[in-house]
Computed example of a mutant assay.
Amino acid sequence: MSVGQDPAHQSAPVNDDPVSRAENARLRAEARLAGTIADFFQDDDARLDDRTRGMLAHVLDAIIGAIESDIRRYAARMLTGNGSTTAAEAILKEGSNPGRVTERLTRAGLLRDEDLMDELIARVRHDLVAAALPIEVTEPDEASLLVRLAGVPDSIVASAASALLAAESRRRAANENGTAVGTDLPAELHHRLVWWIAAAVRTGLKTSSPASDRAITDAAQRCLAAHDEGERPDAVAMRLAAALDARPNELAAVLVEAIGDRRLSLFVAVLANAIGVAFDQVRAITLEPEGDRLWLALRAIDLDRSSIARIALALAEADPRRDIEAFADALDTIIAIPVAEARTSLAPLALHCDFRMALRALARTERR
Protein backbone atom coordinates (compact mmCIF):
# COMPACT_ATOMS: atom_id res chain seq x y z
CA MET A 1 0.00 0.00 0.00
CA SER A 2 1.18 3.53 -0.70
CA VAL A 3 0.84 6.38 1.71
CA GLY A 4 -2.21 8.48 1.00
CA GLN A 5 -4.21 5.51 -0.25
CA ASP A 6 -7.91 5.61 0.53
CA PRO A 7 -8.51 3.73 3.83
CA ALA A 8 -11.27 1.87 2.02
CA HIS A 9 -8.64 0.22 -0.18
CA GLN A 10 -6.62 -1.16 2.68
CA SER A 11 -6.67 -4.92 2.87
CA ALA A 12 -9.06 -6.20 5.51
CA PRO A 13 -8.36 -9.36 7.54
CA VAL A 14 -9.40 -12.47 5.62
CA ASN A 15 -12.60 -13.93 7.05
CA ASP A 16 -14.91 -16.39 5.29
CA ASP A 17 -17.83 -15.63 7.60
CA PRO A 18 -20.43 -13.84 5.37
CA VAL A 19 -21.65 -11.67 8.24
CA SER A 20 -18.11 -10.48 9.02
CA ARG A 21 -17.38 -9.90 5.35
CA ALA A 22 -20.53 -7.80 4.99
CA GLU A 23 -19.61 -5.77 8.07
CA ASN A 24 -16.07 -5.19 6.77
CA ALA A 25 -17.52 -4.03 3.44
CA ARG A 26 -19.83 -1.61 5.25
CA LEU A 27 -16.93 -0.18 7.28
CA ARG A 28 -14.85 0.25 4.13
CA ALA A 29 -17.73 2.07 2.42
CA GLU A 30 -18.11 4.43 5.40
CA ALA A 31 -14.36 5.12 5.46
CA ARG A 32 -14.37 5.78 1.71
CA LEU A 33 -17.27 8.24 2.03
CA ALA A 34 -15.63 10.05 4.98
CA GLY A 35 -12.38 10.37 3.03
CA THR A 36 -14.16 11.68 -0.07
CA ILE A 37 -16.10 14.27 1.93
CA ALA A 38 -12.95 15.44 3.75
CA ASP A 39 -11.12 15.77 0.42
CA PHE A 40 -13.96 17.76 -1.16
CA PHE A 41 -14.02 20.39 1.59
CA GLN A 42 -10.25 20.71 1.85
CA ASP A 43 -8.81 24.09 0.83
CA ASP A 44 -6.99 24.04 -2.51
CA ASP A 45 -3.78 25.38 -0.99
CA ALA A 46 -3.75 22.52 1.53
CA ARG A 47 -4.32 19.78 -1.04
CA LEU A 48 -1.31 17.95 -2.46
CA ASP A 49 -1.12 17.92 -6.23
CA ASP A 50 -0.94 14.49 -7.89
CA ARG A 51 2.77 14.71 -8.63
CA THR A 52 3.71 15.61 -5.05
CA ARG A 53 1.35 12.97 -3.65
CA GLY A 54 2.80 10.30 -5.92
CA MET A 55 6.39 11.20 -5.08
CA LEU A 56 5.60 11.34 -1.37
CA ALA A 57 4.17 7.82 -1.51
CA HIS A 58 7.17 6.73 -3.57
CA VAL A 59 9.69 8.14 -1.06
CA LEU A 60 7.90 6.90 2.06
CA ASP A 61 7.43 3.39 0.65
CA ALA A 62 11.13 3.27 -0.28
CA ILE A 63 12.28 4.42 3.16
CA ILE A 64 10.02 2.01 5.03
CA GLY A 65 10.93 -0.84 2.66
CA ALA A 66 14.66 -0.27 3.12
CA ILE A 67 14.47 -0.20 6.93
CA GLU A 68 12.14 -3.20 7.00
CA SER A 69 14.45 -5.19 4.74
CA ASP A 70 17.49 -4.42 6.92
CA ILE A 71 15.65 -5.42 10.09
CA ARG A 72 14.30 -8.66 8.64
CA ARG A 73 17.60 -9.77 7.10
CA TYR A 74 19.70 -9.09 10.17
CA ALA A 75 17.13 -10.59 12.56
CA ALA A 76 16.92 -13.72 10.40
CA ARG A 77 20.71 -13.95 10.28
CA MET A 78 20.90 -13.80 14.10
CA LEU A 79 18.17 -16.40 14.52
CA THR A 80 19.82 -18.74 12.00
CA GLY A 81 23.11 -18.39 13.84
CA ASN A 82 21.36 -19.38 17.07
CA GLY A 83 19.78 -22.42 15.44
CA SER A 84 16.27 -20.91 15.27
CA THR A 85 15.86 -21.52 11.55
CA THR A 86 12.06 -21.80 11.68
CA ALA A 87 11.76 -18.37 13.31
CA ALA A 88 14.23 -16.94 10.79
CA GLU A 89 12.21 -18.31 7.88
CA ALA A 90 9.01 -16.88 9.36
CA ILE A 91 10.51 -13.38 9.55
CA LEU A 92 11.74 -13.55 5.96
CA LYS A 93 8.56 -15.12 4.61
CA GLU A 94 6.30 -12.46 6.11
CA GLY A 95 8.48 -9.87 4.43
CA SER A 96 7.84 -11.35 0.98
CA ASN A 97 4.56 -9.41 0.86
CA PRO A 98 5.65 -5.81 0.23
CA GLY A 99 3.56 -3.03 1.68
CA ARG A 100 2.19 -4.86 4.72
CA VAL A 101 4.32 -2.93 7.19
CA THR A 102 3.25 0.36 5.60
CA GLU A 103 -0.38 -0.76 5.88
CA ARG A 104 0.00 -1.58 9.57
CA LEU A 105 1.63 1.77 10.31
CA THR A 106 -1.08 3.59 8.33
CA ARG A 107 -3.93 1.77 10.07
CA ALA A 108 -2.36 2.59 13.43
CA GLY A 109 -2.23 6.26 12.46
CA LEU A 110 1.51 6.44 13.03
CA LEU A 111 2.28 7.77 9.56
CA ARG A 112 0.06 10.77 10.30
CA ASP A 113 2.82 11.98 12.62
CA GLU A 114 3.05 15.72 11.98
CA ASP A 115 6.83 15.99 12.34
CA LEU A 116 7.49 13.06 10.01
CA MET A 117 5.07 14.20 7.32
CA ASP A 118 6.23 17.81 7.55
CA GLU A 119 9.81 16.69 6.88
CA LEU A 120 8.90 14.31 4.05
CA ILE A 121 6.52 16.72 2.29
CA ALA A 122 9.14 19.48 2.50
CA ARG A 123 11.81 17.13 1.16
CA VAL A 124 9.61 16.03 -1.76
CA ARG A 125 8.61 19.58 -2.66
CA HIS A 126 12.23 20.69 -2.38
CA ASP A 127 13.39 17.94 -4.75
CA LEU A 128 10.59 18.60 -7.26
CA VAL A 129 11.25 22.35 -7.33
CA ALA A 130 15.02 21.83 -7.57
CA ALA A 131 14.59 19.50 -10.55
CA ALA A 132 12.28 21.98 -12.31
CA LEU A 133 14.40 25.11 -11.86
CA PRO A 134 15.52 26.68 -15.13
CA ILE A 135 19.25 26.31 -15.72
CA GLU A 136 21.14 29.56 -16.21
CA VAL A 137 24.61 29.19 -17.68
CA THR A 138 26.91 32.21 -17.72
CA GLU A 139 29.33 30.67 -20.23
CA PRO A 140 28.52 27.68 -22.51
CA ASP A 141 31.62 25.71 -21.47
CA GLU A 142 31.63 26.79 -17.81
CA ALA A 143 31.42 24.03 -15.19
CA SER A 144 28.56 24.08 -12.70
CA LEU A 145 28.94 25.91 -9.41
CA LEU A 146 29.43 22.81 -7.27
CA VAL A 147 31.93 21.29 -9.68
CA ARG A 148 33.96 24.50 -9.57
CA LEU A 149 33.79 24.61 -5.78
CA ALA A 150 34.94 20.99 -5.60
CA GLY A 151 38.10 22.03 -7.40
CA VAL A 152 39.10 25.12 -5.40
CA PRO A 153 42.40 25.15 -3.46
CA ASP A 154 40.57 25.52 -0.12
CA SER A 155 40.40 21.87 0.96
CA ILE A 156 37.50 22.44 3.40
CA VAL A 157 35.32 24.03 0.73
CA ALA A 158 36.37 21.46 -1.89
CA SER A 159 35.63 18.53 0.42
CA ALA A 160 32.19 19.88 1.38
CA ALA A 161 31.31 20.60 -2.27
CA SER A 162 32.33 17.07 -3.31
CA ALA A 163 30.27 15.63 -0.46
CA LEU A 164 27.21 17.64 -1.53
CA LEU A 165 27.60 16.48 -5.13
CA ALA A 166 27.64 12.87 -3.92
CA ALA A 167 24.75 13.32 -1.48
CA GLU A 168 22.50 14.99 -4.05
CA SER A 169 23.39 12.34 -6.61
CA ARG A 170 22.37 9.58 -4.17
CA ARG A 171 19.07 11.28 -3.41
CA ARG A 172 18.34 11.89 -7.10
CA ALA A 173 19.00 8.21 -7.89
CA ALA A 174 16.81 7.12 -4.98
CA ASN A 175 13.94 9.35 -6.16
CA GLU A 176 14.21 8.03 -9.72
CA ASN A 177 14.61 4.34 -8.84
CA GLY A 178 12.25 4.06 -5.90
CA THR A 179 15.05 2.94 -3.61
CA ALA A 180 16.46 4.39 -0.42
CA VAL A 181 20.02 4.51 0.84
CA GLY A 182 19.42 5.31 4.50
CA THR A 183 16.45 7.49 5.35
CA ASP A 184 17.84 11.01 4.90
CA LEU A 185 15.80 11.85 7.99
CA PRO A 186 16.86 13.82 11.07
CA ALA A 187 18.08 11.50 13.84
CA GLU A 188 14.96 11.87 16.01
CA LEU A 189 12.58 11.01 13.17
CA HIS A 190 14.78 8.14 11.99
CA HIS A 191 14.80 6.75 15.55
CA ARG A 192 11.00 6.99 15.75
CA LEU A 193 10.44 5.34 12.37
CA VAL A 194 12.87 2.45 12.98
CA TRP A 195 11.08 1.41 16.17
CA TRP A 196 7.65 1.71 14.52
CA ILE A 197 8.81 -0.55 11.70
CA ALA A 198 10.39 -3.01 14.13
CA ALA A 199 7.07 -3.21 16.01
CA ALA A 200 5.17 -3.72 12.74
CA VAL A 201 7.54 -6.55 11.74
CA ARG A 202 7.01 -8.24 15.09
CA THR A 203 3.22 -7.77 14.91
CA GLY A 204 3.13 -9.55 11.55
CA LEU A 205 4.55 -12.78 12.95
CA LYS A 206 1.97 -15.51 13.64
CA THR A 207 4.00 -16.64 16.62
CA SER A 208 6.73 -14.83 18.47
CA SER A 209 9.33 -15.85 21.01
CA PRO A 210 11.89 -14.16 23.24
CA ALA A 211 14.54 -15.14 20.67
CA SER A 212 12.74 -13.48 17.76
CA ASP A 213 11.93 -10.40 19.85
CA ARG A 214 15.60 -10.07 20.79
CA ALA A 215 16.69 -10.53 17.17
CA ILE A 216 14.28 -7.81 15.95
CA THR A 217 15.39 -5.49 18.75
CA ASP A 218 19.08 -5.99 17.94
CA ALA A 219 18.39 -5.46 14.23
CA ALA A 220 16.60 -2.18 14.97
CA GLN A 221 19.47 -0.99 17.15
CA ARG A 222 21.88 -1.85 14.35
CA CYS A 223 19.83 0.39 11.99
CA LEU A 224 20.01 3.21 14.51
CA ALA A 225 23.76 2.86 14.97
CA ALA A 226 24.35 2.94 11.21
CA HIS A 227 22.45 6.20 10.71
CA ASP A 228 24.69 9.19 10.10
CA GLU A 229 22.67 12.40 10.25
CA GLY A 230 25.69 14.35 9.04
CA GLU A 231 25.55 12.67 5.61
CA ARG A 232 22.11 14.05 4.77
CA PRO A 233 22.20 16.50 1.83
CA ASP A 234 20.80 19.22 4.10
CA ALA A 235 23.61 18.80 6.64
CA VAL A 236 26.27 18.62 3.93
CA ALA A 237 24.90 21.78 2.30
CA MET A 238 25.11 23.60 5.64
CA ARG A 239 28.73 22.50 6.03
CA LEU A 240 29.52 23.89 2.61
CA ALA A 241 27.71 27.16 3.34
CA ALA A 242 29.66 27.56 6.58
CA ALA A 243 32.94 26.81 4.78
CA LEU A 244 32.13 29.35 2.06
CA ASP A 245 31.00 31.92 4.61
CA ALA A 246 29.98 34.29 1.81
CA ARG A 247 30.52 37.95 2.66
CA PRO A 248 27.61 40.42 2.36
CA ASN A 249 28.90 41.66 -1.00
CA GLU A 250 29.17 38.04 -2.27
CA LEU A 251 25.77 36.73 -1.18
CA ALA A 252 23.77 37.91 -4.19
CA ALA A 253 26.10 36.24 -6.69
CA VAL A 254 26.25 32.95 -4.74
CA LEU A 255 22.48 32.75 -4.21
CA VAL A 256 21.60 33.60 -7.80
CA GLU A 257 24.15 31.15 -9.17
CA ALA A 258 23.00 28.38 -6.81
CA ILE A 259 19.44 28.81 -8.09
CA GLY A 260 20.67 28.95 -11.69
CA ASP A 261 22.63 25.74 -11.12
CA ARG A 262 19.54 23.95 -9.70
CA ARG A 263 21.31 23.62 -6.35
CA LEU A 264 18.35 24.51 -4.15
CA SER A 265 19.97 22.87 -1.10
CA LEU A 266 22.96 25.17 -1.45
CA PHE A 267 20.70 28.21 -1.94
CA VAL A 268 18.79 27.36 1.26
CA ALA A 269 21.98 26.64 3.21
CA VAL A 270 23.74 29.85 2.17
CA LEU A 271 20.68 31.92 3.07
CA ALA A 272 20.25 30.04 6.36
CA ASN A 273 23.90 30.64 7.23
CA ALA A 274 23.59 34.34 6.37
CA ILE A 275 20.53 35.04 8.53
CA GLY A 276 21.37 32.61 11.35
CA VAL A 277 18.35 30.33 10.96
CA ALA A 278 18.15 26.51 10.75
CA PHE A 279 18.10 24.84 7.32
CA ASP A 280 14.60 23.39 7.73
CA GLN A 281 13.14 26.80 8.57
CA VAL A 282 14.67 28.47 5.51
CA ARG A 283 13.65 25.53 3.33
CA ALA A 284 10.06 25.98 4.55
CA ILE A 285 9.95 29.68 3.70
CA THR A 286 11.65 29.05 0.34
CA LEU A 287 8.91 26.56 -0.61
CA GLU A 288 5.97 28.72 0.49
CA PRO A 289 4.10 29.68 -2.71
CA GLU A 290 3.34 33.23 -1.51
CA GLY A 291 7.02 33.92 -0.89
CA ASP A 292 6.37 36.68 1.67
CA ARG A 293 8.84 35.39 4.25
CA LEU A 294 11.43 34.53 1.61
CA TRP A 295 11.43 38.13 0.34
CA LEU A 296 11.86 39.32 3.92
CA ALA A 297 14.82 36.96 4.35
CA LEU A 298 16.41 38.24 1.15
CA ARG A 299 15.87 41.83 2.25
CA ALA A 300 17.36 40.94 5.66
CA ILE A 301 20.68 40.33 3.88
CA ASP A 302 20.18 43.52 1.83
CA LEU A 303 19.75 41.74 -1.49
CA ASP A 304 19.21 44.06 -4.45
CA ARG A 305 16.14 44.35 -6.66
CA SER A 306 17.60 42.51 -9.65
CA SER A 307 18.77 39.50 -7.61
CA ILE A 308 15.45 39.13 -5.81
CA ALA A 309 13.60 39.33 -9.14
CA ARG A 310 15.82 36.67 -10.74
CA ILE A 311 15.33 34.31 -7.79
CA ALA A 312 11.55 34.88 -7.79
CA LEU A 313 11.29 34.28 -11.53
CA ALA A 314 13.26 31.01 -11.33
CA LEU A 315 11.15 29.73 -8.44
CA ALA A 316 7.93 30.70 -10.24
CA GLU A 317 8.99 28.73 -13.32
CA ALA A 318 9.69 25.68 -11.16
CA ASP A 319 6.58 25.89 -8.95
CA PRO A 320 3.20 26.48 -10.63
CA ARG A 321 1.66 27.47 -7.28
CA ARG A 322 3.54 30.78 -7.39
CA ASP A 323 1.94 33.93 -8.80
CA ILE A 324 4.70 35.83 -10.59
CA GLU A 325 2.36 38.70 -11.50
CA ALA A 326 1.48 39.25 -7.84
CA PHE A 327 5.20 39.29 -7.07
CA ALA A 328 5.86 41.85 -9.80
CA ASP A 329 3.15 44.09 -8.38
CA ALA A 330 4.68 43.80 -4.88
CA LEU A 331 8.35 44.18 -5.90
CA ASP A 332 8.57 47.90 -5.18
CA THR A 333 7.06 47.35 -1.74
CA ILE A 334 9.48 44.48 -1.06
CA ILE A 335 12.54 46.52 -2.01
CA ALA A 336 11.34 49.40 0.18
CA ILE A 337 11.44 47.23 3.33
CA PRO A 338 14.34 48.42 5.54
CA VAL A 339 16.97 45.75 6.25
CA ALA A 340 16.69 46.18 10.02
CA GLU A 341 12.89 45.78 9.87
CA ALA A 342 13.21 42.61 7.76
CA ARG A 343 15.68 41.12 10.24
CA THR A 344 13.39 41.90 13.18
CA SER A 345 10.42 40.27 11.47
CA LEU A 346 12.38 37.02 11.01
CA ALA A 347 13.61 36.83 14.61
CA PRO A 348 11.08 34.12 15.64
CA LEU A 349 12.60 31.75 13.07
CA ALA A 350 15.91 31.83 14.93
CA LEU A 351 14.36 30.49 18.15
CA HIS A 352 15.21 26.93 19.18
CA CYS A 353 12.83 24.47 17.51
CA ASP A 354 11.56 23.04 20.82
CA PHE A 355 10.93 26.58 22.09
CA ARG A 356 8.93 27.40 18.93
CA MET A 357 6.86 24.23 19.34
CA ALA A 358 6.14 25.06 22.99
CA LEU A 359 5.06 28.60 22.07
CA ARG A 360 2.74 27.26 19.34
CA ALA A 361 1.22 24.74 21.74
CA LEU A 362 0.51 27.46 24.29
CA ALA A 363 -0.96 29.72 21.61
CA ARG A 364 -3.34 26.96 20.50
CA THR A 365 -4.45 26.42 24.10
CA GLU A 366 -5.16 30.13 24.64
CA ARG A 367 -7.27 30.33 21.46
CA ARG A 368 -9.66 27.65 22.73
Rank of each mutant, 00 (worst) to 15 (best):
G4C: 13
D6M: 02
A8M: 08
H9S: 13
H9R: 15
Q10G: 13
S11E: 13
A12F: 10
V14F: 15
N15H: 07
V19W: 10
N24F: 15
R26C: 06
L27T: 02
A29C: 05
E30M: 15
R32P: 07
R32Q: 15
L33K: 11
L33P: 03
T36I: 04
I37T: 13
R47A: 08
L48S: 05
D49Q: 02
D50G: 08
M55K: 14
D61E: 08
A66S: 14
I71W: 14
R72D: 04
R73I: 13
A75M: 08
L79Q: 03
G81Q: 11
A87R: 02
A90F: 07
A90G: 09
G95W: 07
T106Y: 06
R107C: 12
L110R: 12
E114G: 06
E114D: 08
E119D: 13
E119W: 09
I121Y: 13
H126P: 00
D127F: 04
A130N: 00
A130R: 02
A130P: 00
A132N: 05
P134C: 05
P140F: 14
E142P: 01
S144N: 06
L146Y: 06
V152Y: 11
P153A: 11
S155M: 13
S159L: 07
S162E: 14
L165N: 09
A167V: 04
S169E: 15
R171W: 11
A173L: 12
E176Q: 15
L189N: 07
V194N: 00
A199W: 10
A199P: 01
V201A: 01
K206Y: 12
T207R: 15
S209I: 01
I216T: 11
D218R: 09
L224C: 03
A226N: 04
A226Y: 01
H227P: 11
H227V: 03
G230Y: 14
P233D: 04
A235C: 10
V236G: 01
A246S: 10
A246V: 03
E250Y: 01
E257H: 06
I259D: 03
G260Y: 01
G260S: 05
D261A: 14
V270W: 02
N273L: 00
I275D: 02
I275F: 03
A278I: 01
D280M: 12
Q281T: 10
W295N: 10
A297W: 04
L298R: 12
I301R: 08
D304V: 07
L315I: 04
E317R: 10
A318C: 06
D319I: 00
D319V: 00
P320K: 14
A330V: 06
L331V: 04
D332L: 12
I334C: 03
I337P: 04
A342Y: 06
L346H: 14
L346I: 05
A350K: 05
R360W: 14
E366R: 14
